[in-house]
Each structure stands twice: as C-alpha cells, then as structure tokens.
Amino acid sequence: MASYNTSDFRKGLKIQIEGEPYMVIESNFRKPGKGNAIYTLRMRNLVRGTVLERNYKGGESVEAADVEEIEGQYLYRQGDKYVFMDTSNYEQYELSTEQIGDAWKYLKDGTLCQMVLFESNPITVTPPNHVVLKIEYCEPGAKGNTATNVTKPVKVETGAEIQCPSFVEMGELVRVDTRTGEYIERVKE
C-alpha cells in the first residue's frame, strides 16, 4: 500500500485513516529550531464530510487513499438505488439514498456528475453546479408580478420542491444552483 511521509504533506493530499478516506485541507509545520518537528493536518472525511485534526512527528508516514475522480452519468433509479455509469469505460455503479444525499433533487436521466471512488467503490456524487429543471406543478403565477423576492414552492420534474419567484408557471424551465438549492432564472426551451 502506498504511503506518504511527513515531507510529502500538503493541501489536497488524499489519505486513509482507520479505513476511511480523507482529503487534507490544511497542512502546518511547527518546529523549535533545534527540536522535533510537528506536522499538523486538518482533513475532511470524504464520505461523511467531518473534519479531523492530527499531529505527526517528522518522519512518520500515513497511508495513501486509493481515491479516484470520474465523470458519472446518471442512468436511472431502481428502488432505493441510484445507478450511474462511468463515461470513460461504461462501468456501472449503484449509490444508496444515503450516499446520494441531496443530489437526487437535481438528477435527471443522463445528468453528468462528478463521482469520487474509494477503492473502486463510489462514495460521493456531485451534480453540476447549475441544472435546468422543468416545473411539474405549482400554484398559478401572479400576473405581472416580476418581483423575485416573493416566492412560492414549486415541484420540479425530479420530484423535489424548490422555492421560485411567484411569476413562474407550470411547464416552464428554471435554472437552479445545486450548491444552494436556489432558483437562478427562467430558461427558454
């Protein structure tokens, strides 16, 4: 198994601790002039998103995480499994509802997502920052009201509910920011 020595430590490194993959978000070096060096890593758990901080003595090593980023195309849902395909080799992967998290709200057939594999198993999926979704149901719009600060709940084609300005209508397309879940604009077909 590959490993990294303290002299390899840097931001962005992907390492494994107690069987879980982490990405280093901050690496610090402290050392009394004549004394022993302390390396401090702040890292994010790539599965759970939690942050961990660990200290290492100069010369210590940590296991590298076999982490790979691929482009995964969303194919379909089967029960509580979401099926994706690696666009480079057509390999298919299934993700559970838990692994999908909020991403289901933005998944249409064919959506290209960024997927992270740990030891060849998918751990996270990130949809594109912006997606265009069709409004399936909403209360009728207030004609002539172009204010964007008056909102109403709207059900989109994925089944998710999104807050949109009150002027949008059923059947229209809206662009949504997947990082915040917020409406951006209406889109013409």
Partner: peptide
C-alpha cells in the same frame, strides 16, 4: 503524535 513514545525531549518540544 502517535510516535512520541518515551523520548522526553520529543515530549518537551511538543
């Protein structure tokens, strides 16, 4: 750090 062990000087530096 896990590897400080019994070395007093390592502990003093930490």
């Amino acid at each position: 750090p896990a590897q400080l062990g019994d070395d007093i000087d390592d502990w003093l530096d930490f």
